[in-house]
Design a protein around this nucleic acid. Structure first.
Lengths: 163, 163
DNA sequence: CTGAATATGTTATAATGTTTCAAATTTTTT
DNA sequence: AAAAAATTTGAAACATTATAACATATTCAG
């Protein structure tokens, strides 16, 4: 497996997913957090897509599992997963995506392709540094950064129309 | 008037608002865009708060004007104002705020105080540069950046509880 | 085992945003 | 100025996203 998977390049995504689940189990164990079946299933569903999944998309998937869940079930699971750094919420899309840097302390930055919908998460220390500098130079104490870049991924620049 | 108003410092905000409206009229004229009464009123309402206003907050204000508007009226006005760079949408809050750099080409960056709710818009060229670099180094063509920092403004760090 | 804490189920509802089509207004053209 | 075209607004219904409140079940700690 490469150091970092690139969503818009073909790769064995099942491996990504199962690795993410393994990581999650390990992380939760370390933090004494309970990765219950529902939470794990929600994480799995989110990971199975490189495109962010809305809460109601997750809900629909659960329904097709035969699990007749209500919205709070999903939102609770998502809250849990967010709090433990296993998924990120993309504010500009009202959707969620698996964190590719789970366990590492990081400030995510998301490249969102408006054509194919895929999202790449980056950690760009130089960006974080500049953001922090800009904030502190205004006397502002930064706690949480939302950084989402919409545009075109390399693949969609070349040949538009990918889904 | 100082070069840049600081929301969490006292200042003559009425002057801010009327200047913003003057600017808006000028900008729209230059762009052959129609700043109709509704649009202007929505802009005014948004400017009267340093805190971002939700679409339904605007709707409520219009209602107390006696203007019985429906949601699409507000959303259309907000779309117009956004398209002409007069307001920004804060994705992490589902809310809108007057643009303090209207007319200037810029990439906004928002410092959002979680205690008092005030928002300061900055343009930090060094941040924009680093963001662009990070994106292009992934072959990504950036079009639109959402950059929102939640935290504590100077005033709320010192004495909490401001509204 | 028992009580406390945590997690889930369930119903209802709130908050945010859009679709659609009709009517009015403004602009452009004739 | 009148007609045609484009733009803006009105209005009703609906879609999507998210939360509140309370009951039940499960897990954990002593």
């Amino acid at each position: 497996m490469p150091a970092r998977a690139i969503p818009y390049r073909p790769h064995n995504h099942d491996a990504c997913v199962s690795q993410a689940l393994d990581d999650a189990r390990r992380i939760c164990q370390r933090q004494n957090a309970r990765l219950t079946p529902i939470r794990e299933r929600v994480l799995e569903l989110i990971w199975q897509s490189h495109k962010p999944l809305g809460a109601y998309d997750v809900l629909a998937e659960l329904a097709s599992d035969g699990h007749n869940a209500a919205p709070p079930t999903v939102y609770r699971a998502l809250d849990f997963l967010q709090q433990h750094g296993l998924v990120h919420r993309i504010a500009s899309l009202n959707a969620f995506i698996g964190c590719t840097h789970a366990g590492q302390s990081h400030t995510g930055m998301f490249l969102i392709c408006r054509a194919c919908g895929n999202v790449l998460e980056l950690t760009a220390p130089s960006v974080s540094t500049e953001v922090r500098r800009a904030a502190t130079s205004e006397g502002f104490q930064a706690e949480d950064t939302t950084l989402e870049i919409a545009g075109l991924c390399p693949r969609c620049q070349a040949e538009p129309g990918h889904e």
